[in-house]
Amino acid sequence: MILSARDISVSFGGFTAVDGAGIDVAEGAVVGLVGPNGAGKSSLFGAITGYLPASGGTVSLDGVDISRLPAYGRVRRGLGRTFQVPREFTHLSVRDNLSAAVPEQSGETLLKLFGSPSAVRKDEARVRRKVDEVLEIVGLGHVQDLHGGSLSGGQRKLLELGRVLLTDPRVVLLDEPFGGVNPVMIERLSEVIKSLNDRGVAFLIVEHNLAALSRLVGRLYVMDRGKVIAEGAPADVLSLPAVQDAYLGTVA
């Protein structure tokens, strides 16, 4: 298992948002996570990525316990994430948005910044090349000089995906990648996700658009009221009475 979350609990004050939920993502797999609003998906996401303090449970990445690492530390180990509402750097150009994400830059340490300008310059060339590559993959080359804040909703999702890609992730958690995105862009995003998956990046995707999700994932988890209530192949899981109940219960 590349990512394995066990017995995760998250509570806010007296309210338990996630109650002993567990999720496994195999190396190179694409896994979906669905459930009605308020099921605890986002909180589970937060706990796995280190954005929310878990009150219990462990998260391990490739067999190494990362439960005590801060959010940025988990990213460095290869656990990437995007946000439900894209959090691109609005005042930075698209190129700078991506450049900032390149790990281990000489120009980001004070010692090299002031001590060895030539190393910094050389490293900037490396950063430029990596960013060029990713611009190609996500197809944002033509807008690289625009501010992040001036992009369309779909382009922002692509930009975030590109940014995560630059952190060299082993597994990426996508928080509603298709939310508020038009069908053409959903197609684009799906293609990018697939092509990254072909390069060995695993995905865990929270998504309400079941049709689009089913085409990507081989395995689906369903959450309700803080617990995982079903898991398996998408078609099987979605036809389970308990799952239909959970969904219809909130829709009706």
Partner: peptide, 9 residues
């Protein structure tokens, strides 16, 4: 928050 998500502290 997004700075954390690109692996920087």
């Amino acid at each position: 928050a997004a700075v954390n998500a690109i692996g920087k502290n």
